[in-house]
Write a protein that binds this DNA or RNA. Structure first.
Lengths: 191, 191
DNA sequence: TGATGGTAACTTACCCAAGGGTCACTTTAC
DNA sequence: GTAAAGTGACCCTTGGGTAAGTTACCATCA
């Protein structure tokens, strides 16, 4: 099998394993086993556990920030943005649901390349979240910047828990997930 | 120092370290070092890493389920329950903010005593969340049980992210945190 | 009162399995 | 024949876990 194709397989398997068990809990030999190869090949292609994690992280982070940026750039009513962003995330990661977790893994080493890259992706996503929260809160007369930060962080937590819930329900596809969120938000908040 | 007192110190240090780094990422020697003792004493008192984790988990889980149960039992408007529960959680864990994370640590081994105990606490808390979500959604004409489950899980995710945010702001006390949540929910949802 | 023995707190130094990482080698395709 | 895909067997550090011993305190008793 050509290197490029094998690497893609390994990144997919790594994303699932890192997403499931976290960086600290994931095992390189287990990731290799999933693909049907052995550990030395994994090291030949990615150099180290950090190298593989970074490859997984960049793939996930780039796709995610791109999708969110496109959606946010399109604009619209502040109340509609959360749903639009959710729909974009669900569509992008329908077959790769663990990817989101890589950006929010608490078990990566506190310093080093991984921490820096993950912090950078989180920073970019947080900026979008803060932008959305600002639009939403100011339209309702709430201007405290600390409130806005809190709402932005809760928003990422909501995405997090929706994706965790989704991972446990593989039969629910992206469209059904988006429809469910729309129905719930409409009912609960009148949005 | 008497055993009882030392054990309490170690449970506090363990809760912080497990909460910060997760079960897989936490180190027993680091936990002992925080308290100023060495690893063998930790093992003499708790037997194993699992034993220490279970001690931390039970302390956190018991206090949490008790506080939530008391609050839910008091009853009230469905729209007011989330705020009341949040206020109870903030008050209970004002000086022990990492405790919540032990119930939701993804890096614990998938089987064994810890997994069973954590699943049990989560099950009890989920039951409260489902109860609250049912009251809230049925009052708005949403009766799909799958929607209710999703809302319940998102609710726990909201608590999770609020606590993470709070951990990063040690100057904000429980009362300020509750007031902030009340202000935001009032502004965003009109609750 | 002071020697004595026992117990609980605590440490140094070690064992061992797991897992990240490497080397030398074999197979396969062009 | 050579270059790339791939492997078996190994090294070594990390970290969970333990054995054996030391200190400090306190109750007891000539």
């Amino acid at each position: 099998m050509p290197r490029e194709e094998r690497e893609a397989q390994l990144v997919v398997a790594g994303t699932e394993e890192f997403g499931r068990a976290g960086y600290a809990g994931a095992s390189m030999v287990e990731i290799a086993r999933r693909v049907g190869v052995t550990k030395p090949l994994l090291y030949q292609y990615f150099g180290s556990k950090d190298g593989l994690y970074l490859a997984c992280l960049h793939r996930a982070g780039d796709r995610l920030t791109e999708g969110v940026a496109t959606t946010m750039a399109a604009g619209g009513e502040p109340e509609q943005m959360p749903l639009k962003v959710l729909a974009a995330i669900f569509t992008t990661f329908d077959h790769d649901r663990y990817a989101w977790r890589l950006l929010r893994d608490a078990t990566v080493p506190a310093t080093g390349d991984i921490a820096a890259a993950a912090a950078d992706y989180r920073r970019r996503l947080d900026a979008f979240a803060v932008l959305g929260a600002t639009q939403l809160l100011t339209s309702r007369g709430l201007a405290d910047p600390v409130d806005i930060e809190a709402v932005a962080q809760v928003w990422t937590g909501v995405v997090d828990s929706l994706i965790s819930w989704w991972i446990d329900r593989p039969d629910e596809d992206a469209a059904a997930m988006a429809a469910r969120c729309a129905r719930i938000m409409g009912g609960l908040f009148g949005w």
